[in-house]
Amino acid sequence: MNGEGSERTRVTAGRHAGGGRVDPATEAFVAHRNLLFTVAYEMLGSAADAEDVLQETWLRWAGVDLGTVRDRRAYLVRITTRQSLSRLRTLGRRKESYVGSWLPEPLLTTPDVAEDVELADSVSMAMLLVLETLTPTERAVFVLREVFDLGYDEIAEAVDKMPATVRQIAHRARAHVAARRPRGVVSPTETREALDAFRRAVETGDLQSLLDILAPDVVLMGDGGGVKQAILRPVVGADKVARLMIGGLSRVPGPARLRPTEVNGRPALFLQLDGELDTVVAVRIDDGLITGLYAVRNPEKLSRMDRETILRR
């Protein structure tokens, strides 16, 4: 399903009421659309599924009596969260049959995302993978509380729990994430310098320079979705990862180029083959070293990389 196209069509079709005025329901939805997309994407790690959630949100919102709605933003976030939770459980079943490792769908983001440190951290590939280790409800509560700063009462309505229960879930999720997230705040400059060193070492085949920038326990994950060739299981250890990266690039037919870019609010790399995007490589940095390498090759997950995606809190 092309969620983005069909959702935009529906919104455009309902945008004007008599006399060319924008009807209130459409106006509210359009005003908060980027926020709602960000909520859904952080919940799901998939832009395609987030777009489908937005279409479902619009369909439900269009039938709401606005006279009964006190806070339109909160109401829309509640609908989006509930639809995301439903989709997240479906995604869980889909991932069980996924070929190889499942990685979040990378997004080419606007410069202002990187400027919002908390937002950039929350949508980074490393953080989205940490969120994958939470239960659906824990993920919803963590995202709404820690990223979007919603009150416990609002979150309770969104996840259909009592506020006291939500507080307990939030505490549990926060501790779980804290134990697994990158150990310190990493500046874009530090990430860019590490990626530059990584790129030079891979392109020149300099094994020692590559080992110098990789943590001893670095993990390389690849996602080809069963469509493109990729490692099926994570590769652990600097020596194994370094030799695989250098050897893999040397065997690529035709001209290959690693190009710096900005993905999910953080510096990343595009691997281009014959001028076409083949792979997006994102990283996790801890203590100045690369501890995680995430290579997404699945073409379905690269379909949005030709345009920037606007994310908002």
Rank of each mutant, 00 (worst) to 15 (best):
L107M: 13
T110Q: 14
T110K: 13
D112C: 13
D112H: 13
A114N: 05
A114T: 12
A114F: 03
E115S: 15
D116I: 06
L119W: 05
L119R: 05
L119Q: 07
A120G: 06
A120W: 00
D121A: 09
D121P: 02
D121F: 09
V123D: 00
V123T: 07
S124C: 13
S124E: 06
M125N: 10
A126G: 03
A126F: 07
M127P: 01
L128T: 04
L128Q: 15
L128D: 00
L128Y: 02
L129W: 00
L131M: 12
E132C: 05
T133S: 14
L134F: 04
T135C: 02
P136Y: 09
P136A: 11
E138G: 15
E138I: 02
R139L: 06
R139Y: 04
R139C: 04
V141M: 08
F142C: 00
V143A: 07
V143M: 06
L144G: 08
L144H: 10
L144T: 08
E146D: 14
V147I: 09
V147H: 02
F148D: 02
D149C: 11
L150K: 08
L150N: 05
G151N: 13
G151W: 11
G151T: 09
G151D: 15
I155Y: 05
I155R: 01
I155L: 10
E157I: 05
E157P: 01
V159H: 08
D160P: 05
K161M: 12
M162C: 07
P163I: 10
A164W: 10
A164C: 07
A164E: 09
T165E: 14
T165Y: 04
T165V: 14
T165H: 14
V166M: 11
V166G: 04
R167H: 11
R167W: 12
R167A: 12
Q168N: 14
A170Q: 11
H171V: 06
H171S: 12
R172F: 03
R172G: 02
R172H: 09
A173W: 00
A173L: 02
A173H: 00
A173N: 01
A175N: 10
V177I: 07
V177M: 00
A178Y: 03
A178W: 01
A178Q: 11
A178S: 14
R180C: 01
R180H: 07
R180D: 00
R180N: 03
R180E: 00
R181S: 04
R183C: 04
G184Y: 05
V186Q: 01
V186A: 03
P188G: 12
P188S: 12
P188Y: 13
T189K: 08
T189F: 11
T189H: 08
T189P: 03
E190K: 05
E190T: 14
E190V: 13
T191K: 11
T191S: 12
R192E: 15
R192H: 13
E193C: 04
A194L: 06
A194R: 07
L195Q: 10
L195G: 04
L195Y: 13
D196R: 12
D196L: 12
A197K: 14
F198Y: 08
F198P: 00
R199M: 08
R200L: 08
A201M: 08
E203K: 06
E203Y: 05
T204S: 15
T204N: 15
G205Y: 04
